[in-house]
């Protein structure tokens, strides 16, 4: 086993992550203004900003889905129970006793089991819930003649709101967990540079050096 600096987040993934982050913040800010929870932005501009950011995010997702499917990176999000118990135990107990995080990142599996379940739920439940309800709301004029349309609109709005708040809660937990284990900066850096320190087996190391030299940095001369 050797600790090597390996590229775990390719350029598109980093672009996707940060653009998505920015758009989610715009959407949260404008969305809360639309709901009337803050007065930092007037309703009119908030709606326009919200729609533009939402449409941009949907376009980004279309590209991201295509990227996940064609590169095989979707496999990172396949849930597993293997090691899940240990990760949960760490967060509720071990962390307070100074234990090390039980998960060791692999370059082909960058998320711990709890992380992958959380991201999977985000991607297959919350995100679709918010953009489907958002599109339905945006298309109100196409279905307003449906019987009980106003009541349905209320349901759609409520789901949209709840999903938005759930995403906000996710953001809070997500950012907090960057402080767990390594320092915050060390956690963020890989999503900027693409490279993270990974324990590689001799075979993995040999494979990357031989077949994907761009993904592994030369051994530090120390």
């Amino acid at each position: 086993m050797a600790k090597r600096s390996v590229k775990v987040y390719p350029r598109f993934e980093r672009f996707w992550h940060w653009t998505q982050m920015a758009l989610i913040f715009v959407l949260l800010f404008t969305g809360l203004a639309i709901t009337g929870l803050h007065g930092g932005l007037d309703f009119g501009p908030a709606v326009i900003g919200h729609i533009i950011a939402a449409l941009a995010l949907i376009v980004l997702w279309v590209f991201a889905i295509f990227w996940h499917l064609t590169t095989g990176t979707w496999k990172h999000y396949v849930p597993t129970r293997d090691g899940l118990g240990r990760v949960v135990r760490f967060y509720v107990w071990g962390i307070f006793r100074g234990e090390h995080h039980p998960y060791r990142k692999a370059y082909w599996r960058k998320h711990n089991p709890l992380q992958s379940i959380a991201y999977l739920l985000l991607k297959v439940v919350l995100f679709p819930a918010i953009w489907i309800t958002g599109l339905i709301a945006l298309g109100w004029n196409l279905w307003e003649t449906v019987p009980g349309a106003t009541a349905w609109a209320q349901v759609v709005t409520n789901i949209h709101l709840l999903a938005a708040f759930a995403i906000a809660a996710f953001v809070i937990a997500h950012v907090y967990l960057l402080t767990v284990g390594h320092s915050f900066r060390e956690h963020v850096r890989p999503m900027i540079t693409g490279f993270d320190t990974i324990d590689l087996t001799a075979e993995e190391e040999a494979y990357l050096e031989a077949d994907e030299p761009g993904r592994i940095k030369p051994r530090a001369s120390s």
Partner: peptide
């Protein structure tokens, strides 16, 4: 169904509680 008219509707309150509980 008019957005902005009732910031603290059921979904608003429930959602805010969810965020506050997480924080």
């Amino acid at each position: 169904n008019m957005p902005g008219r009732a910031p603290f509707g059921t979904a608003g309150i429930f959602g805010l509680l969810m965020v506050l509980a997480t924080a």
